[in-house]
Amino acid sequence: MVARWGIDDDMNFEDVFAKYQKLIYNLSRRIMGNDEDAQDITQEVAIKVYRNLHKCKGEDFVAAWISKITHNTCMDALRKRKGKFTSSLDDTVGFDDGEVQVQIEDEAIGPEALLLQKELNAQIETALLKLSTEYRTIVILRDVNGYSYEEIAEITGLPEGTVKSRLFRGRSKLKNILLREQNQSDLR
C-alpha cells in the first residue's frame, strides 16, 4: 500500500530531494508536456514534500508518495487551466472512448514497421503528448515509471479496474498513433 508513508528520522529534505528530483521533474514534464510547467511543478512539489516529510513512515514508499504528490500537483495545474487550453492534438487523433480509429489493416504492415522507425524514443515521447491526460498519465506511471496497478491506483486515486482499462486504451491509442504516423510517412 502506498497510503502509509514512511521515512527514517535521519533522512532530511535535501537528501530526499537530491534522490527524487529527476523523478519529479521527468514525471511532471511528461504529464504537463513541457519544460516550463515541469519546472514550476517541481518547485511546488518540493515545497509539499518539505512540509509533509514528517508524515512519511517508510523509505520504500517515498517514490510512490512523491509520485502521488507530483501527479496531484500536475492535475491541479491542468484543472486550473482547463478552458484556457485544450489539446488540439487530442482532437486530431479523435478517439472515441475505447474505440481506436486506426483500422486493423494498418497493423498489417507488421511490427518491423515500428522497429524500422528511426528515433522511436523521440517519436513515442511526441506521441505520448497526443494522448489525453487521463491515458497519458496512466501509461507513463506504468510503462515509464514501472509502478504496479495497485500503486497507480493509489497514486491517482482511481479504482484498479479503471487503471487497467485506461492503460490498455492508452497503449492502444499510442500504438495506433505511431502506426498512423508511420503510414503517413510511407505515403510521402
Binding site: A18, N26, Q43, P111, L114, D143
Partner: peptide, 30 residues
C-alpha cells in the same frame, strides 16, 4: 506492436533538471 510500444516506453531516459534549477528549488524551499 504493443510490445514494442511498452518496451520503448520502458527504456525512455530521464532528462536532467535544467542547470541551477535544483539549487534554486532547494534554496526557495528551505
Amino acid at each position: 506492436n504493443l510490445l514494442i510500444v511498452t518496451q520503448t516506453l520502458n527504456t525512455l531516459s530521464e532528462v536532467d533538471l535544467p542547470e541551477g534549477l535544483a539549487d534554486r528549488i532547494l534554496w526557495n524551499t528551505t
